[in-house]
Amino acid sequence: MGVTGVLGGLMGLAPHVLHHVGPLVGTALVAGAGGTALFGLLGLAASVPMLVRLKRRFASWWAPVVALLVFAAMFGISSFVIGPRISAATDPAEPAVSETVDHGVHHDS
């Protein structure tokens, strides 16, 4: 029981810890849509033993389905609401626009 709790805690912390390692292992792997999909699949794979135990305990597929819906909702909130708010810049970047154009410069040979 204690080992399962520790393993569950480590699996819960893994995406957060690996998020900080991102620049070292390549942002293409752990950032953006690829990283979100990767950690979603890892979370789903890590939850399979719990889902099997829920199925056995309640003798129904309803408990695992509810657990998967809760997992999907929490993962979605974390990935698509909290994550972008944490990593977004406070001020949107404004394009640099010149007030004047020196046409004589590009006509000089």
Rank of each mutant, 00 (worst) to 15 (best):
M1I: 06
M1C: 04
M1W: 03
G2F: 14
T4L: 15
T4G: 10
T4S: 02
V6T: 12
L7M: 08
L7K: 10
G8H: 04
G8N: 08
G8R: 02
G9S: 10
L10H: 05
M11Y: 14
M11T: 06
M11D: 08
G12H: 03
G12N: 06
G12V: 12
A14K: 02
A14F: 12
V17E: 11
V17I: 14
L18K: 08
L18I: 13
L18W: 07
H19P: 11
H19T: 11
H20I: 01
H20G: 13
V21P: 10
V21C: 02
G22H: 11
L24D: 13
L24N: 10
G26I: 14
G26K: 08
T27H: 02
A28G: 14
V30C: 11
V30L: 07
V30I: 08
A31T: 05
A31I: 04
G32R: 00
A33H: 10
T36S: 07
T36Y: 07
T36I: 08
T36P: 09
A37H: 09
A37R: 09
A37F: 05
F39L: 07
G40C: 02
G40K: 04
L41A: 12
L41D: 05
L41Y: 08
L42R: 07
L42W: 03
L42G: 03
G43E: 06
G43F: 02
L44A: 15
L44P: 06
L44H: 05
A45M: 00
A46G: 12
S47T: 10
V48M: 04
V48I: 13
P49T: 08
P49Q: 05
L51V: 10
L51P: 14
L51H: 09
L51A: 10
V52A: 00
V52S: 03
K55Y: 10
R56L: 13
R56Y: 15
F58H: 09
A59L: 12
A59V: 15
S60R: 00
S60A: 02
W61D: 01
W62R: 14
W62A: 13
W62S: 09
A63F: 11
V65A: 10
V66P: 04
L69H: 02
L69A: 01
L69F: 00
F71G: 14
F71K: 13
A73D: 07
A73C: 03
A73F: 15
M74L: 12
F75C: 02
G76E: 06
I77M: 06
S78A: 05
S78I: 01
S79G: 01
F80A: 07
F80R: 03
F80E: 06
V81G: 00
I82F: 01
P84T: 00
P84S: 01
P84D: 03
P84F: 04
P84V: 00
R85A: 03
S87K: 05
S87G: 03
S87W: 04
S87L: 04
A88Q: 00
A88I: 00
A88W: 00
A89D: 03
T90G: 00
D91W: 03
D91C: 02
P92M: 06
P92I: 01
A93L: 12
A93P: 10
A93C: 10
E94H: 07
E94D: 09
A96N: 10
S98P: 04
E99Y: 03
E99M: 06
T100A: 12
T100H: 11
T100F: 14
T100W: 15
V101L: 15
D102F: 10
G104V: 15
H107E: 08
S109P: 13
S109D: 15
S109Q: 13
